[in-house]
Write a protein that binds this DNA or RNA. Sequence first.
DNA 1: CTAGATCACTGAACCGGGTAAGTTGGCAGA
DNA 2: TCTGCCAACTTACCCGGTTCAGTGATCTAG
Lengths: 337, 337
Amino acid sequence: MKRPTIADIARRAGVSKGAVSYALNGQPGVSEATRKRIIAIAQEIGFNANSAARALSGARARAVGLTLCRPARILGIEPWFMGLISGFEAELGAQSYALTLQVVASPEQEVEVYRRWWGERRIDGVIVTDIRADDVRIPVLQELQLPAVVIGGPGDTGSIAQIWSDDAGAITEAVRYLVALGHHRIARVSGVPGLLHTQVRTKAFDEICASLGLENTITVPADYTGEEGSRATRRLLIGGDRPSAIIYDNDVMAVAGLAVAQEMGLSVPGDLSIVAWDDSPLCSLVHPPLTALSRDISAYGAQAARELLNAIDGKRVGNVEAGRVHLTPRGSTAPPR
Amino acid sequence: MKRPTIADIARRAGVSKGAVSYALNGQPGVSEATRKRIIAIAQEIGFNANSAARALSGARARAVGLTLCRPARILGIEPWFMGLISGFEAELGAQSYALTLQVVASPEQEVEVYRRWWGERRIDGVIVTDIRADDVRIPVLQELQLPAVVIGGPGDTGSIAQIWSDDAGAITEAVRYLVALGHHRIARVSGVPGLLHTQVRTKAFDEICASLGLENTITVPADYTGEEGSRATRRLLIGGDRPSAIIYDNDVMAVAGLAVAQEMGLSVPGDLSIVAWDDSPLCSLVHPPLTALSRDISAYGAQAARELLNAIDGKRVGNVEAGRVHLTPRGSTAPPR
DNA sequence: CTAGATCACTGAACCGGGTAAGTTGGCAGA
DNA sequence: TCTGCCAACTTACCCGGTTCAGTGATCTAG
């Protein structure tokens, strides 16, 4: 089946290609009557401008890129990315931008993908997640002058916009809440230590614990997977000075930790209180439902997409704090027995 | 920063644009010596062909599309789609095809997206999931002659390729296993009834139950969400003739069912055995770990991508059964007390 | 020794939009 | 009546690849 082009419309309307282009793009240069006629014809024959032709002349690809740098088995289960993606879509779809996805194995490979996308003019900008301290991707993005938005931080990203949530405030709130319940021995199972937001959380956790005079607080590093979450939890629970509450850096590890506690015959929240980070449906799914540090991930994604579109339009964008993180108490936290 | 084009390479190599194109694409028409020289220059200056220009002349966009038709809150938690996506990527990345994603609200909107993508020449083919009986998307894809692969079935998709797994065999195996353990009252919580594979499973479930002489078997329809899974489970467990085993159509509902059982004071697997469909890490994360009907979703996705690339290349592709589904027994199933 | 084939390459058209520069026709003002 | 000006177009070229029809030069066969 032949796709209609502006030439087809021009022929039917009895005008030139140029007039059709002006009419469809809301440019001056055609009368209102002609514009309406042209738009009607375009609608009638179901015209969509060839994105390649448009990108070739106009320089906009009307697509943004996202790379996912996690092994398949983690990607699947972590609700975070899908939440983010559906947030992007809400914004991008409205502006008829497409989202191009690429799964990669390492930040180095991610850099290659950025270079390729840029060279191919496939995308107008990228969304960067899992930002690290001294991230290798930042200088490349600046060199290529590829519009970008970094999710996570706050940290040093030079001229590149970033969106972050107040992780430090959130973990402070969680610790205060646990202390108010009567907990003294609070542990934490963290995500990948190299990531910037993990470092922000660890620092804030140490600070609030110190300021509240808590001793024996410990952060066990893990990697967001269920397996590592179980392992870290086991290590914490077999020790002599068992914590009475554990804060997990994501929901998956928290659920895994809950299972370990149950398997060891500990009652949650009687013997152990559990707080999860990121409140996905997963948290309400298990028994007892998990107290969580909630934030609206979709809204977070939508905001990131908006900022990126601004950056693509050449508008200067800066350092934005998105949405509030708030503690949602559920059945997994209680005063210690 | 200026992007290098073939004209730049041509100038530096002292040949014409055409020669460069032949050289880089492995076409005959240049000597080996010249080809090597041109490729070396391209590498040196970091050349990537402009995808828009290529798509415009060559007719290939080197991208495929995937629409996700689930509300955000389900998308996030269901490991299925991410597993599928990482499978696609493994294949597509190797052939340097891009994956374009769009979240939609309904099959009708999906049809619109297909039409737009086709009109814009944005993609070379699409992967269709969640296929229904008499799916509205099938005739549109045939009308547009858009290369496609349908995941799920088997069913009537006309000339469009499909990939499916032996769901009927899998559920038969699960029922036989439960009966062998001594269960007589087996219930099932299904996914969305309109979907083709749900119907396939329901039919097979009814047949095997009938042939084994089981009575009081019941399928409660749900929608893959945890909430519906809980509701359905509660309904089954408060009845007088309580089932001793439940088969769930996905992992999320199974986990929700487990929580409901625990909340009602029933022991799993003592009072209730649970079988989940699709063995994501979620199943091993909870306590007890769930017996599951496993299949390699990534491999499934990779196979689908391969078939789609074949379809795009004009190779005739048909009806393919992918991978085996097999029962992975874990702690959630045991003989009834 | 020459017609014909083959090789290695060039030049130009083309894909389908965007857009700067040029061309009408109509009307106002001097 | 002529100039000037503006709206409403048209013309023509650009973007960066692909591809087809040449074009010399070299090779081969009769």
